[in-house]
Amino acid sequence: MAEPMGFYTDTTVCIGCKACEVACKEWNQLPATNGGVNTLSGDSYDNTRRLDGIHWRHVKFIEQFPEDRKDGRWLLMSDVCKHCVQAACLEVCPTNAIIRTEFDTVVIQSDVCNGCRACIAACPFGVIDINPVSNTAQKCTLCYDRLQSGMEPACSKACPTDSIQFGTIRELRERAGARVQQLQNAGEKRAHLYGADEKMLGGLNSFYLLVDKPEVYGLPPDPKMPTRNLVPGSLFSILGALLVGLIGIVNFRRRGAGEVKEARP
């Protein structure tokens, strides 16, 4: 197994050019939305709106402006599959279409997926969706095909500001730690890393440098594995089954004959 590879996305240097979105679409030959007819979201420069089956990269535009518009800032963040070390989608996938590669990344095999959509509901980040052309669930593959031939993913290759950086997780974490330190020293006390350490789902192989709370970026502050509910859910269901069984047995055994007469004169 090769060393774990991933993305480190420094949101503070993202300029919202969407080169990553375009590079991703080009490499993976993903179709245009709505037959190429431009639809505007109408509330932002962000017309991609969300990650789905034909958008595996999405630059989020978060506008933080007060009512009087005197001050303000744009938060820009190129969102992508987090390639979780403990992957919720891979865990629940009932066809094993979702696999873990030698680069520690998570990839959906489009010739195996049958579109049950369990992974879509399981992903805590809302990354996966059905690709309308293949009718299978799809998401970022961290350019598995490029990685296998020793190339870096299309999005990070295209990123003009190095907001998206690709490399071994070890190296990326060092780089990210230094950057957080730099920002903190410069007075940006809110700078922190999201998903770099092991606390969140064992670690995210695509982690972020954020300068606000995760919720502001549309990221869950506390993502969890779906199987957390498996044992309690099953135990309560068994309890329900026992109670129902008990009620059934008692009532089929003790059938009041009087009741029959009473109801049928």
């Binding site: 919720a88 509901a121 992903c123 509910n229 859910g233 099953s234 309560f236 269901s237 329900g240």
Partner: peptide
């Protein structure tokens, strides 16, 4: 019911009681 709970969707995965409710 357990299947709906073993997801990360609102309501479904915020309670462990869906399976029991469905059985009953």
């Amino acid at each position: 019911g357990v299947l709906l709970a073993v997801t990360n969707r609102p309501i479904w995965s915020d309670t462990p009681l869906l399976g029991m409710l469905f059985v009953v």
